[in-house]
């Protein structure tokens, strides 16, 4: 019973972690699902967002302005990837890797080292929420409330944006490049725009993550894309048949991230060595990405099998 209560006690923390990574995954959704490209810039831009936010807060800048700056910094990172891809013709995966590597240096420069702490005593009242996770504190619920509100606003804004003419042209670029050009869409522009928007949101999630961890660390983006992909995949598994409404899909990406962190906490709680966690995340994503392909191969071999599994 005690163990169960202890486990239950880890859930609010996992939920807040999940909501933050949900924002990140929603950003990733724009490139991975809408533009249909795998953008590896995010591993760098999430840290850029965290670094920009933390450094500005320690310099006394208002937290909202610091978060806005993180958003803009992420957009710039996305622009770099976009230009490498569209102006220089470098494949988007490689462009993302190049930008990610550049960002490693940029992030070190911004941080002026490998780590900056936002100590609670000094900055506790300057950030939106802190990492105070003592059970008697109500802080975690305030944090959850703030994160829920932020996620809701982001989903609402993106729902609106992808219903506008510009937003629809981004979606059609990812869906059918040839048709988009034939319909007068400047597909280079839409790609660059999508990459910038995606990385802006990812960097914004980095700013949230830095507040929750009360620090920005040069290593905090490592493997971020895998966690984001896991959230997207888990979210899709949940809403596959439910609906095609765009806002609901984004909502389920956030749900996917929360489920991911619930599972993560539970696995840690059950005593899995934390060294293995990244391996586990990567394997889960690999399996989920591979299943549709294997399904297709299996079913195309067996003739006469009913069409829908």
């Amino acid at each position: 019973m005690n163990i169960f209560l202890n486990w239950l006690g880890t859930l609010p923390g996992a939920a807040s972690q999940g909501l933050i990574w949900g924002v990140m995954a929603i950003g990733l959704y724009i490139t991975f699902k809408i533009l249909d490209v795998a953008d590896l810039t995010v591993d760098g831009s999430i840290c850029t967002g965290a670094a920009v936010c933390v450094v500005l807060v320690t310099k006394g800048v208002n937290i909202w302005i610091a978060m806005l700056a993180a958003f803009v910094a992420g957009a710039l990172a996305g622009l770099v990837t976009g230009f490498l891809h569209t102006l220089l013709g470098i494949p988007v995966i490689l462009s993302g890797i190049l930008t990610q590597l550049m960002l490693w240096s940029v992030n070190l420069l911004i941080l002026g080292g490998s780590n900056i702490a936002l100590t609670r005593l000094k900055y506790g009242d300057k950030v939106l929420f802190t990492s105070d996770s003592s059970p008697e504190s109500a802080q975690i619920y305030i944090t959850l409330g703030i994160l829920l509100a932020i996620s809701a606003v982001i989903i609402a804004v993106l729902y609106w944006f992808f219903g506008t003419e510009l937003g629809i042209s981004l979606r059609s670029t990812g869906s059918n490049l040839e048709m988009s050009r034939a319909q007068g869409i400047n597909t280079n522009f839409t790609k660059v725009f999508g990459l910038a928007l995606s990385n802006a949101i990812v960097a914004f999630s980095g700013a949230l993550l830095a507040q929750q961890q009360a620090s920005a660390n040069i290593n905090m983006g490592k493997g971020a894309i895998v966690i984001g992909l896991a959230a997207i995949i888990v979210g899709e598994a949940f809403c596959m048949k439910a609906t095609t409404n765009f806002a609901v899909r984004l909502l389920f990406v956030a749900v996917g991230a929360i489920v991911y962190w619930f599972v993560y906490q539970t696995v840690i709680f059950l005593g899995l060595p934390s060294e293995l966690l990244k391996m586990l995340s990567a394997l889960v994503v690999a399996i989920f990405l591979g299943v549709p392909y294997l399904k297709k191969r299996l079913f195309s071999k067996k003739k006469g099998v009913k069409k829908h599994a």
Binding site: W160, F161, G163, T164, E165, L166, G167, I168, S169, I185
Partner: peptide, 8 residues
């Protein structure tokens, strides 16, 4: 020009 008008 494709702007921020609601598309449909």
């Amino acid at each position: 020009k494709r702007g921020l008008r609601w598309a449909i």
